[in-house]
């Protein structure tokens, strides 16, 4: 055997294999994971409601709020046996109405908002002023916690929140924070958007919550326009790719109709 071959075998076959067998000591991080059910009305003209599970992961100094679908897709990517070549397609594959990721940095009381466009993640600057809460003395038991009611005005809607001081974290679903405890339930008074806690548990993981790096920055209105264009382009491309013109026309029309029924965002202004 030639020496170069021997070196090759050592470098690429034996050494990685032996590394694969070592299980180094790994420190685990502790999180509180809250699962909220979001019930929402995408079309203000219809009574139909949709629902999705949202995850709030609370770490030491910051938290992350996202749809369960996005979180699942991330963990699939992290899974070693996942077919690596399909990772790039994954993010477009997972279907959710909420592609945003909201990070709250506790000591700074800062919110960082990210959203996806295709496979790209953008940091979308928000016109966000910290919420001013009106606390009330009203309490009710909810999910085994004693919850207190607080109200606020946020993004054109009037909200009622129920929080508990038994979980000593000033956090909650979406961009809501600043109460003396965790928000267990929050809804706008029209009940178009309702986040309600389903589960709260302690979890451990090898990963930490990290702010995405390398993300281009944009503002909400450019993002919205870009997203609409991107989707329309995608639909047009798919529709006109090999389909007969009638089918293509139908696909595009179906899409437009669907978009008309998405007229009730959480933030009205």
């Amino acid at each position: 055997m030639k020496r170069s071959t021997l070196i090759f075998v050592l470098t690429f076959v034996v050494i990685p294999f032996s590394f694969a067998q070592i299980k180094p000591f790994e420190e685990k991080n502790t999180f509180i994971t809250c699962t909220y059910r979001l019930t929402y009305k995408p079309d203000s003209l219809s009574k139909d409601k949709k629902s999705e599970l949202m995850i709030l992961t609370i770490g030491n100094n910051l938290s992350k709020f996202e749809s369960q679908y996005s979180q699942k897709s991330d963990s699939i990517i992290a899974s070693p046996s996942f077919n690596q070549s399909s990772i790039d397609l994954l993010s477009t594959y997972i279907k959710t109405d909420f592609t945003y990721q909201i990070y709250k940095l506790y000591p700074q009381k800062v919110i960082k908002y990210y959203d996806k466009l295709g496979q790209k993640l953008y940091q979308v600057n928000q016109n966000y002023n910290s919420t001013t809460w009106q606390l009330t003395a009203t309490t009710k038991p909810f999910a085994g916690y004693t919850c207190r009611k607080a109200t606020t005005l946020f993004a054109g809607r009037k909200w009622e929140a129920w929080f508990t001081t038994e979980v000593p974290v000033s956090d909650g679903p979406y961009k809501f924070m600043g109460l003396p405890g965790l928000i267990i339930e929050i809804y706008d008074i029209d009940k178009d958007y309702n986040f309600s806690l389903l589960q709260l548990k302690k979890t451990t993981s090898l990963n930490t919550i990290k702010l995405p790096n390398n993300t281009p920055t944009t503002d909400q209105s450019s993002y919205n326009k870009g997203k609409a264009d991107y989707r329309l382009q995608g639909v047009t491309k798919v529709a006109t790719n090999g389909n007969s013109p009638e089918v293509a026309r139908q696909l595009i029309e179906n899409y437009k109709l669907k978009q008309l029924h998405k007229n009730n965002p959480l933030e009205i202004k």
Binding site: I32, R37, L53, Y69, G144, L198, Q199, L200, K201
Partner: peptide
């Protein structure tokens, strides 16, 4: 006293 964990309804597992 540990953190009070709750499960109101198990989230359906995908």
């Amino acid at each position: 006293t540990p953190l009070k964990e709750v499960t109101i309804k198990s989230p359906p597992i995908r």
